[in-house]
Structures are given as structure tokens and as C-alpha cells.
Computed example of a mutant assay.
Amino acid sequence: MKILVIDDERPTLAMFRLFLTACGYEVLTAENGEQGMDFFASEGPDIVFTDIRMPGMDGLEVLRQIRESGSSCPVIIITGHGDMEPAMAALDLAASDFINKPVERTALNSALVRAEKQLYQTEPAEFSVTETPGDQCLKLIFSGRLSQAAASKLSAIDLETVPGGKALFLFKDNFSIDRHGVFILLEYLRQTAGSGVRIEMSGLSHNHIRFFEMAGVDKLASLVPSNPGETGL
């Protein structure tokens, strides 16, 4: 599998090359967005990592051009810690995932696993939430892309009479979200906060949990990581 990494910092490129090569990937590196897009056109990588802040063509423009080309190639955005607005903009452009600098092995592994699964998905991207009643709690299974158009599907779920006072939100591998989806989810959680229902979210990638924490979702629901430990690269 071929991976393209775009970053204007050579030490970051060297770190990615070392780790990804050791994991068996073929690695291409580019020091700017323009060079990265040239490699994308000529080499057709399976997965792209791109820094969001670079001189000249930044990571958002790289992502925009990849999407405008018609490619659904997973693009993973590399951001600085706490870069909420750029992360939102990347999700609006259907970024596959994002990781923060300094890059941690857990976050990188999570992004790679998610990207590889997306390459072979045959499920539709349309958002759906499936209600599965149980004796102890209500399970909601989220799949597809949560955006403004999907607001009615989420608001139709009533948590007022949840058995056991607990709701479990399970997010499938093909789940994604944009700026409007984040606001919709936050508003839904705020509206149900007074019901006394405990909400637990599971199945999110390590990196989406980071993003949800930045957005304040963790103040309204428990976020359960798949891999709670972190190891620096």
C-alpha cells in the first residue's frame, strides 16, 4: 500500500518515513503542497497525510484539490494541538481523520486502521442511526456522514423513556462528521441533558475523540477510546 506524506518540516517527514516503512508501507514524501499534488497525480497513493499549515499551498487546499479531482482517497490532516477551526474546515471537506502534533503512535495507528477500512467499504455514505432497544440501555448505531441534512434523523430519537437511564452510541467505521454535524450533535446532547439519561459514545477513532473533546462533547457524554494508552513515536 502506498502512502503520501506532505509536510514542510523535514524531521516530521523523516519520522513518518521511518515508522510507515517499518510497518510495510511504500512511502512518498513531499515538502510542500504543490509537490505533494504532483506526486498525487503521478503516483496515485492509497492514503495521504498532509500538514494543515504550510507555506504556499496548505493542507486544506491539498484536500480541496483531491476532492475536486473526484478521488475518495482517505486524507488524514496533521494539525497543531487545539487547532479547532482548521480541523472543522478539514471535516467540511470530507477529511478521513486528523492527528495532532506531536504525533503519537496510538493516534497514527488509529488513523491508519480507519483509513484502510475506508478503502474497502461498500456501505453507503448516507447517514443513518439505528435504534436497538435493550433491557439495560438503548443502543444507537451511527453510520455514514452526519451533516446538516441528517438533523431530522437524529432529532427523531427520543431519549426520554430510555430503559435503565442509559444510552449507548456506537459509531461504525464509516461514520464521519462535518461542522454542521458537530453542532447538531452538541445541540441534541444539550437538549437531552435534562432527561437524566447517561450517554456513552463508543467506536470513535482515537483522533475523533480528541476532536470531540475540543468541541466540548465530553462535557455531555462519556467518550470511550478503543485504545486508551498513548505511546510517543
Results as ranks from 00 to 15, higher is better:
residue 227 N to M: 10
residue 226 S to E: 15
residue 125 A to H: 13
residue 197 V to K: 01
residue 225 P to Q: 01
residue 27 V to L: 03
residue 210 R to D: 14
residue 26 E to V: 12
residue 49 F to D: 07
residue 210 R to E: 13
residue 54 M to T: 06
residue 11 P to I: 03
residue 71 S to F: 05
residue 164 G to D: 01
residue 79 T to A: 14
residue 133 P to K: 06
residue 207 N to E: 07
residue 133 P to F: 01
residue 30 A to K: 09
residue 201 M to F: 01
residue 4 L to M: 09
residue 77 I to F: 02
residue 141 I to M: 00
residue 12 T to S: 14
residue 47 I to S: 01
residue 109 N to H: 11
residue 71 S to C: 11
residue 78 I to T: 04
residue 155 S to V: 09
residue 42 S to L: 14
residue 158 D to H: 09
residue 148 Q to S: 14
residue 135 D to E: 15
residue 16 F to S: 09
residue 62 V to G: 05
residue 41 A to Q: 15
residue 22 A to V: 00
residue 69 S to C: 06
residue 143 S to W: 04
residue 22 A to R: 15
residue 78 I to W: 01
residue 98 F to E: 01
residue 206 H to C: 12
residue 224 V to S: 11
residue 65 Q to W: 02
residue 186 L to D: 02
residue 96 S to R: 14
residue 82 G to E: 07
residue 54 M to Y: 07
residue 69 S to G: 14
residue 21 T to N: 13
residue 34 E to H: 13
residue 140 L to A: 00
residue 216 G to C: 08
residue 38 D to P: 00
residue 109 N to I: 02
residue 66 I to L: 03
residue 219 K to W: 05
residue 82 G to H: 04
residue 79 T to W: 04
residue 21 T to R: 14
residue 199 I to D: 00
residue 212 F to Y: 13
residue 57 M to W: 03
residue 74 P to T: 09
residue 50 T to S: 13
residue 23 C to G: 15
residue 38 D to I: 10
residue 51 D to F: 03
residue 82 G to V: 03
residue 118 Q to W: 10
residue 20 L to G: 02
residue 190 R to E: 09
residue 29 T to P: 05
residue 114 R to Y: 07
residue 205 S to A: 12
residue 44 G to N: 15
residue 95 A to I: 08
residue 138 L to E: 00
residue 6 I to P: 06
residue 67 R to V: 05
residue 21 T to I: 00
residue 77 I to E: 03
residue 49 F to R: 10
residue 28 L to V: 04
residue 181 G to K: 05
